[in-house]
Amino acid sequence: MVVDRHPDRLKLVEEIGAIPIDDSKVDPVEAVNEMTMGLGADNGCECVGYQAHDVEGNEHPNMTLNRLVQSVRFTGTIGVVGVYIPQDPGASDELAKQGEVVFDYGQFWFRGQTMGSGQAPVKKYNRRLRDMIAGGKANPSWIVSHELSLDEAPDAYEHFDNRDDGWTKVILHPSGANA
């Protein structure tokens, strides 16, 4: 199950065989719990970070974390790969400005969940993943929406940051030539 509200990304979710949940149309906690007979997902992954926001566009840095606590089963695991920074002067509230979020620790503790977080250990996996791609065992290119020259990076970043339709992942080619 993948929660999102952008039609282009929800379409990709379906294409890889996952279940899309459009949180602009349904409560994602209720949807996950309904699909799991009230048990919750075995595991959940927070991939948004401090920029999580509601359907109206209001920033809620803790929204995804707290929704995961409610939709992951008792003793389940939550991974946090979304970016949370120590300080965000432009944040929506005073806590977030200090890199803090209101987290439902009581419910997290009661459910006996575990959480792992931090930046991906790229050096631990990069050679193995490269070999899987080269050997045809993994094909991550399905997520790439654009291949552009390095000169086009500012425009591409703006589209990606705005979550414009069809901008999922961008590959930049320093030489300007598309692969």
Rank of each mutant, 00 (worst) to 15 (best):
P140F: 11
A177P: 05
N43A: 12
S92H: 06
F103V: 07
L12N: 13
V81N: 06
G57P: 01
Y125R: 07
T168R: 03
N33C: 13
D42F: 08
A120Q: 05
W109D: 06
C47G: 13
I171W: 09
V102G: 00
N33R: 14
D42G: 01
G82F: 03
K124E: 11
N126H: 09
D131E: 04
G118H: 04
Q113H: 01
V102C: 01
H173K: 02
K97V: 01
S71M: 14
E14M: 14
M63C: 04
K123S: 01
Q113R: 05
L95Y: 10
I133F: 08
S92V: 07
M37F: 09
F74W: 10
C47M: 14
W167E: 03
G90H: 09
I21V: 15
L95Q: 13
Q119P: 02
F103W: 09
S141G: 09
T64P: 08
D4G: 14
V48A: 10
I16W: 05
V144S: 05
R128F: 09
P7S: 15
V170K: 04
V72G: 01
D93M: 10
K11R: 15
D161L: 09
G76D: 00
K25S: 04
V81R: 03
V13A: 08
G40I: 02
A96P: 04
G136N: 06
L65M: 12
V2W: 06
H60F: 13
D164E: 15
S117G: 09
D161K: 04
R5G: 15
W142R: 08
G99K: 09
F110Q: 10
